[in-house]
Design a protein around this nucleic acid. Sequence first.
DNA 1: GTAGATGCAAAGTATTTGCGACAAG
DNA 2: CTTGTCGCAAATACTTTGCATCTAC
Lengths: 136, 136
Amino acid sequence: MKVSIEKKCINKGVKLTDQRKIIAKIMSDADDHPDVDELYKRVSKIDSKISLATVYRTVKLFEETGILAKHEFKGSKARYEELNESHHDHLIDIKSGEIIEFVDNEIEKLQKKVADKYGYELVDHKLELYGIKKKS
Amino acid sequence: MKVSIEKKCINKGVKLTDQRKIIAKIMSDADDHPDVDELYKRVSKIDSKISLATVYRTVKLFEETGILAKHEFKGSKARYEELNESHHDHLIDIKSGEIIEFVDNEIEKLQKKVADKYGYELVDHKLELYGIKKKS
DNA sequence: GTAGATGCAAAGTATTTGCGACAAG
DNA sequence: CTTGTCGCAAATACTTTGCATCTAC
C-alpha cells in the first residue's frame, strides 16, 4: 500500500506545517509532473498566502527526504513528481510534451551490469526517451 | 574518419569567425566535458577579448548544428562535449565527479523497443548512470 | 519554550538579448 | 556590400537566502 506523504514526513521527523500539508496533497493528487510555477499556482488557489519561496523550500526538502523526485527534462524547467514504491522512467513526446511513464526491467538489469563492468555500484540513474508519435 | 568542426561549419553554412575557430579547437582538444565557465576560461587564455556572451552563443549554435552535445547532469551546470559518429552514454562517479563514457547496444535496442511499444519513434534519449566505485 | 518554518524582498546563478560597431563571404 | 557576429551591459529566468516573525511539537 502507498504510504501517504504526511506519514512519510512523520517518519522522517519533518515538521508538518499547513503549507507542507497543502503541497503534499497537491503532489499526491497530481497525475502529471508540475514545475515549481505550476505547483505554486495550484497551491495559491488553496491558500494564496503561501509564498513561492516556501514552495521552493518544500520541494527541495521533499526531494532530499525521498518524497518527491526532481526531473530536468531537456530544455525545460525542473519538474516534480511523487516518489513511491514503483520506480519508472519517462518517454517524452517532443511535439506535445506528453509524458509517458514506463518500466523495463531488462534495461534496469543491463544498467546494473554496465556499472558493474566498470567497477561501480549503481546508486541512481536517469533514463529519458524522446520520441514522436507514429501515425499508425 | 572524424570530420573537423571547421569542416562541419562549412558544410552547414555556419560562418567561421576567429572566435568560433578557437572554441571549436578547444572543444575538439578537450577530453572532458567542460561547462560554459570552464570553456570561457580556456578560451580567454587564447584570446582574452572573447566575451562570455559569445561563448554562450557559440555553444548554443554548435548544439543546434549538431556539433556539440549538451548534458545536464544531476545538480550541476550544463556541460558540453564534441559530438561525433560514436554515440555513447555516461556513467558518473558521484564521489569524484569523474565521467566514464560507455556504449551498450543492447540497451539501445531495448529503448527503441519501448518507444515502439507505445507507438513512438525514438528520436533521442538520455541515459545517465550514477555510481560509487566498489572497493574490490 | 524552542527549534525550525514562513513571508518578504533582496541577492545569487545561469543564460539571453538589444544595440551599435565590425567582419566574413 | 550585406548579412550575420561580436562585445558590452542590461535584462531575464530560476532559485536561494537573510531576517524578523510566527508556529509545530
